[in-house]
Amino acid sequence: MLRSIAQKDPNVKVIANARNFGHIRSPYHALLQARGHAAILLVADLQDPPRMIRDFIEKWEEGFKIVLGVKSQSEESALMFGIRKMYYNFINKVSEIELTKNNTGFGLYDARVIEILRGIDDPYPYFRGLISDIGFESYKIEYVQPSRKRGVTANNFYTLYDIAMLGITNHSKIPLRLAAMVGFVMSAFSFIVAVVYFLAKLLFWNYFSVGTAPLVIGLFLFSSVQLFFIGIIGEYIGSIHTQVLKRPHVVEKERINFDKFPENLSSVTPKTDNKKIYYSA
């Protein structure tokens, strides 16, 4: 369908990837290919209302380099909307910067913003966090997210968990520092309990029984706390591993209605000068 539309209208440009690279990398790569004065990002299931494009452009013409659509309510599952709202509240509390709540990336971005994103060179970006980190003042337009009309979302618990942890590891060191503080507090607490038990046994040798219940409960408590924070550390290590690999956002299979097709699709860096666009592998 896209190929048919592109044949009729040369202004329609299509990039087909070699496979589905996911909802984090693919849209980000596509946005970096935009060469207009501004670009608008919205998802294909139309839960981001296209009618808002007019509102975005009006605010952009007033001087805002970033105009975002923010969900005030949603016709999706009330439970999922509530969980997402709790997540945004949590990440804003632990983040080093203030992130926009209830925004999925839907909005308008000036060419200046996109140029900055090209220079960041993040292989697995948390897009919403990057937009907040850039620091440009944004205008937020609230809307009610409609329910999905067709198709079934490819998102599942793992993909949602992945992007949630990506936001935390990219914009907060609090979980790591919390692990150190909790470890110190629990060590001190354990030492105090041990001293109390020792004194109680000395004073009431014949009547005080240590018992196995405190030992078993303490063992399970400390083991679970250790596993939890080992998992947190693992998330940060995984994030570092992803950055070190420096894999491309996507591998392209086909471009339609672009003036030039890059020779090396697996690692292209678009560059511009005043007269033309060229690619360096």
Rank of each mutant, 00 (worst) to 15 (best):
L2W: 15
L2G: 14
Q7Y: 15
D9R: 00
N11D: 15
A18F: 04
R19A: 12
F21K: 06
H23M: 07
S26W: 01
P27W: 01
Y28H: 10
H29P: 00
H29Q: 02
L31P: 01
A34M: 11
R35Y: 04
G36R: 09
A39F: 01
D48Y: 03
P49G: 04
P49Y: 04
R54I: 14
W60E: 05
E62R: 15
I66A: 05
V67Y: 02
V67H: 04
Q73T: 15
Q73H: 13
S74H: 02
E75M: 11
E76T: 11
A78G: 13
F81Y: 11
G82M: 08
Y87W: 11
I91P: 00
S95E: 09
S95W: 07
E98N: 12
L99S: 04
T104C: 11
G105Q: 04
F106Y: 15
D110K: 01
D110I: 01
I114A: 03
R118M: 06
D122Y: 04
Y124K: 08
Y124M: 09
R128W: 01
L130G: 05
I131N: 03
D133R: 13
S138V: 06
S138H: 06
K140G: 03
K140Y: 00
I141N: 00
V144D: 03
P146C: 05
R148W: 07
K149N: 12
R150I: 09
V152K: 08
F157D: 05
F157Y: 13
Y158P: 01
Y161W: 14
T169M: 07
H171F: 15
P175F: 05
R177D: 13
L178V: 07
M181N: 12
F184T: 10
F184Q: 08
S190K: 06
I192A: 06
V193C: 10
V196F: 14
V196A: 05
F198Q: 01
A200L: 11
A200W: 09
A200R: 07
L203T: 03
W205V: 04
G211L: 09
T212F: 08
A213S: 09
L215P: 01
V216Y: 10
I217C: 08
L219R: 09
L221P: 06
F228Q: 08
I230Y: 11
I230Q: 13
I230C: 10
Y236S: 05
I237G: 02
H241N: 13
T242N: 03
Q243D: 14
Q243N: 14
P248W: 06
R255A: 04
N257I: 10
N257K: 02
F258H: 07
E263S: 13
L265R: 01
V268G: 03
N274R: 12
I277A: 07
I277G: 02
S280L: 12
